[in-house]
Design a protein around this nucleic acid. Sequence first.
DNA 1: CTCCTGACTCAGC
DNA 2: GGCTGAGCCAGGA
Length: 132
Amino acid sequence: MATPKKNNKSVREKLASVNPSGKKDDSFFDLVFEVTRQIPKGRVTSYGAIASCLGTKLSARMVGWAMHAAGSAKPKVPAHRVVNRNGMLTGKHHFNPPSQMAAMLKKEGIKVKNDTVVDFKKLFWDPSTEMI
DNA sequence: CTCCTGACTCAGC
DNA sequence: GGCTGAGCCAGGA
C-alpha cells in the first residue's frame, strides 16, 4: 500500500484531545490503547499502521506487545480489531478463548476466514488518515 | 544490573 | 517465489 502516513504528530495531538484529563503519561502503551479504541466498529487496522502513525513504525512489535497489556487496560481495548499487515489474526491465540477474536470480528460484520480478515484491505482503517 | 523474549515488519537470499 | 535474518522497544526473570 502507499502508506503516506506522516501525521504522526497530529495523531498524538488528537489523542491528547481524547485524553484531556491532564493525563501526561503518553506511554507507548497508552498511545496504542488510545488509537486502538478509536478504531470504528466493523473496521480493522494493523500493528504497523498504528506504529507508523505513532512514529515508531520500526517497532510494530511494541504495538503487539502493548496489546498484551490491553487485557488489563480499562476500559477494555478492542485488540481484536488489530491484526497484522496481512489481515491475519496472529494474536488470536492470546485471547480467551482464541476463537473470541474471530467471533468478535464476525459479530461486527467482518468476515473472518482461516484466521484471516476477508477484504481486510477494504476494512482497513488508517489511524493517521481516517482518525484525524 | 544483564539477558531474553515478544500479538511485527522489511530487506535480503 | 518463499524463506531467513535482523531491527525495533519495553517489560519480566
